[in-house]
Amino acid sequence: MVEQPGNIVEAQQRFASRKDIDVIAAAQQGDKAAYKQLYETYVGRVYALCLRLTGERTMAEDATQEVFIQLWRKLSNYNGQSQFTTWLHSVTSNIAISYIRKQKGWFQRTFNIEDSPVMDDSDAGSAGDVELDRYILRLPERARHVFVLHAIEGYRHEEIADLLNMAVGSSKAQFHRAKQLLTEWMDDE
């Protein structure tokens, strides 16, 4: 019997999950080689999220390193109840947001144009030449955080409000603003 492509994909996914579980278990036991394997598998995902949240390559690299350093100790909290990627994205969002907060002083956040874009187009190439990605990186910080977390990561506005210390209404307003800006920019091209 010839296996259908769908079954092959499903089988591959199952295999990948099984393999991941073994690697995660080894890393939880303190196996650094296994942890490096996890890093190699997931660094792209973590970096993509950090890049979209920070809007800047160097800061995204630092945030990615911070995530993996903290993850080493947090890994024991993962109990296998959810998909590892779901858990990883949630941990990454939390660490990256708090990293961004630490890096930006109170003064900068308050006086510096909290709402101005943080990057120029030269950084956009690092997001993989995807047009929408380029525009996302140009969004004002808060609008970008909300858009990335809601539209890409699938967070609910209640969760975003909690994570970013803002009202649910503000999260919705920032999301609306982000969509408006992105549509305008894309229409102008």
Partner: peptide, 8 residues
């Protein structure tokens, strides 16, 4: 959008 971007 791609969920995977490799750092440089």
């Amino acid at each position: 959008l791609s969920r995977d971007i490799q750092p440089e």
